[in-house]
Each structure stands twice: as structure tokens, then as C-alpha cells.
Design a protein around this nucleic acid. Structure first.
Lengths: 215, 215
DNA sequence: AGAATAAAAGTGAGCAGACGCTCACTTTTG
DNA sequence: CAAAAGTGAGCGTCTGCTCACTTTTATTCT
């Protein structure tokens, strides 16, 4: 169900109002992180009173959880669609890289939120939601690789679960490199100032790297 | 110079006292992150008064910077030593993986601190110290790969700077996977409960992956 | 050597500002 | 005219940091 973590009241208000609140909260949380995010500011930016906000969400944690869930669902939906298209593995990888590059521009706050969330120490809470997603992804990648091995598209002398892990590691770091200040700077150090804008070159090189590893 | 960011007073006190303060601060910062770290608690755990702490360090930021610098230096020193040994690239990679696995146990708080630091938004401050380190690493990896290309150890149809980037991405994620709660859980999802303890298998699989990509 | 004294180091109660959250109240809805 | 939705001043708490004060160390003088 949509916005499961929010209170009933929130689900009854107009979609426009919902969106304004979600946008304001995503803005604040992704920019300042959980602890430094200011609830009063979120309310002000969203054009609602703090009192109302606390009728929609039990507390700060609850609002944060809702935003994390929304982001997680949005990203997962895209990934699911791509993998469900039943292409061969290297086409899928290319599509995923393309999706990361596109999302880094249109939804970069969600990537940033994801980065902050994983750095937090009370991961137990956030793991319950984002964790299930990671589990599904892990299985999907592993079975894709296994299929590729059977089709002769990948060599057979490695553990598909480990290679799925390394593959997703490369994707996670690509997300960070496009969305988070620190990793943006780091990317520049490695491949130069304007690499951030040359999507095609990055995609080409990364696929070459992955293909090499698999074949 | 040692502890450059700290005040002169700090550099004059006994090494034992310095170490107690650094340990207490590293503990607090790595466990709770910058914002939620409590200065009063650090002082108490280190066995000094808050007043003294503020004679050693200008403010919270300053103490944090000092801890980040120390961690950064410690890790960089190890990496520099390994790369300086002039082995062929795959021996170096194996040694780096081994060092990550070892440090994940002996210095895991430093890795955690690094993860939190990179998620912070005021990266400009921390970039000044950690950033210079990343720059050096980037150059070292790239020239190592270039050398391998010339020696015929790696194929020549890729950009060494991009491959250096992907290589270090795999190392960074390995660090996180061994040290940070979220990524530990994620690693379990991918390769199973007891993969965290099977260092040899992880090393073997990762080298296989990297070797494939390079050759 | 020890007293006198100045400088440096150390202390912790408490100030000041920030912020999550409440609640007595008003407005809107059905 | 209830019931539900909305409001925002301000309460309570938390915490970075200060400052008036004490203790220790270093130096000078008799």
C-alpha cells in the first residue's frame, strides 16, 4: 500500500499537498542528513504547520522512513522493469548504467539519501525496508549471471553470487560518483573534470571492464 | 607535522593522554557520526574535562578534522607501503585486499569514519585532507595499470584512468562491506552468512573478477 | 634550599541557542 | 453542531562551548 508508514490522515489529503510535503522532506533529508534535518523547516517549505505534520507522521523517524521507502520503491521499480525485459545480460547491464546516469540527474536526491542512510548507524531500522530490496536484487543478479554461464556468455569458473556482488558494487559506486559531493570530486580526480558529463564514455569503459571480468 | 589541526597545547601533553583522547573521539565519531557525536561524552571517556578539550581543539569540527586526518594518514601509509614494494600489479592487488581484510578487524572504526565522512554534505572541508590522498592514489593506480599494459600483463584497449577508478571502487565497497552495518548485511544477502569470515574465498573471487577485467 | 610569584594547564557548573514535539485553540467539513 | 483537520506559540530537553576559578609547573629571588 502507498505511504504505508504515514498516518491515515496523510493518505486522505490532496495529492498535491502530499507531494509538496514529500518533496520538502526529501530536500531537507538528502541535503542535511537525518540528524541535521529540521522538521520546522520542512513544514514551512511544504506550506503546512508543524502541528499538521505531526498529525500526518508520528515523529521525525516516521517521516524519514516514509521518504526512504518512497525513494527505495522508485529506484526498485525502474530496476525491476529493466531486468524484467528478458534481454541478454550485457544489454541489461548497459540499460542499468544508462538508468543510473539518467536518475543521477532527475532523482539525484534519492541517491544521496540512500548514501546517507547506509552510513547511519541505526541501520536496523532502515534495513527492514531497503534491505528486502537489496535481497531481491541480489537474487536477480545471481540468477542472471547463472543463466549467462549456462548460455556460454560467461565463463563458468566463478561463483555467480560473488560476481553479482562485485557487479552491484560497481553500480553503487557509480550512483555515489554521480550524486554525492565527495564521490563527484573523487571521480574528477580519477578521470578528469568533464568525465561527469561524458555518459557514453563512462558506459563504454564500464561495460568493457565488466565484460572482461565475465568472459 | 603530527596533529597539525590541533592546538599547540595538545601537542605538549603526554602521548598517553593524547591517545586516550583520540581513541575516545574516534569511538564516538565512528559510532554516532559527526552530528550525533557528544563532546561531553568524549571528554568523560578520555578522562579529561570539557574545558581542557577546548584548550586542545578550537571546536567540534577541529577535533573531528584531527581524527579524520589521523585515520586517513594511517590508511594511506599502509597503501603507500604496499604499492612501493614494486611487485607486479596482481600481487599488489592481492596485498591490498589482504590489507583491507586485516584493517577491517584491527581498525574498522577508521573505515566507518571514512564512510560517514563521505556521506556528509560539507565535504568541502574534509575534501581538503582526504581529497589529496585520493588524488595520489588515483595517480598511483593509473600508472600501475599503464605499466601493466606496457608489460603485456593487461590488454591495451582501455583507458587506464577509468580502470583505476573501477578498481578502487571495488576496494572502497569491500571496505564498507566489512566495516559498516548496512553493507555487512548486504554482503550477507549476496554471498551468505559466513562469507564475512572466509577471507580467502573473497580474495580469490575478487582477484578472478579483476584479472578477467584486465586481461 | 626553599619561598615567592608568575604563567600555564586543568576544571565543570551552567549559559545560550537550537529543535523535536505538544496542546489549547481555531477553522473547515459533512 | 459534532468531528475532523489545521495552527503555531512555546515547553522541555539536549549539547556545544565559556569563563571564573583551582591546581600544577616553571622561573626568579633571597
Amino acid at each position: 500500500m502507498k505511504y504505508m508508514t504515514a498516518n491515515e490522515t496523510f493518505r486522505k489529503i490532496s495529492e498535491e499537498k502530499q507531494n509538496k510535503i514529500i518533496e520538502a522532506a526529501l530536500n531537507e533529508f538528502s541535503q542535511y542528513g537525518y540528524s541535521d534535518a529540521n522538521i520546522n523547516k520542512i513544514a514551512e517549505r511544504a506550506g503546512v504547520s508543524v502541528g499538521s505534520l505531526y498529525k500526518y507522521f508520528n515523529d521525525k523517524q516516521n517521516l524519514y522512513q516514509t521518504i526512504v521507502n518512497i525513494s527505495s520503491d522508485t529506484l526498485q521499480e525502474t530496476l525491476g522493469r529493466i531486468i524484467g525485459e528478458n534481454d541478454d545480460i550485457f544489454i541489461i547491464i548497459e540499460k542499468i548504467i544508462g538508468a543510473i546516469q539518467e536518475y543521477a540527474r532527475t532523482h539525484h536526491k534519492m541517491f544521496k539519501l540512500y548514501n546517507e542512510m547506509t552510513a547511519e548507524n541505526n541501520s536496523e531500522l532502515t534495513w527492514k525496508t531497503a534491505g528486502s530490496v537489496e535481497g531481491v536484487t541480489a537474487d536477480l543478479y545471481a540468477s542472471l549471471i547463472e543463466k549467462a554461464q549456462k548460455q556460454g556468455l560467461a565463463r563458468k569458473d566463478f561463483d555467480p553470487r560473488y560476481f553479482a556482488f562485485f557487479l552491484d558494487n560497481l553500480f553503487v559506486m557509480l550512483q555515489f560518483s554521480y550524486s554525492c559531493e565527495y564521490y563527484k570530486e573523487r571521480l574528477k580526480m580519477y578521470v578528469g573534470e568533464n568525465a561527469i558529463h561524458d555518459d557514453a564514455l563512462m558506459c563504454e569503459q564500464l561495460i568493457k571492464f565488466i565484460k572482461g571480468a565475465f568472459c
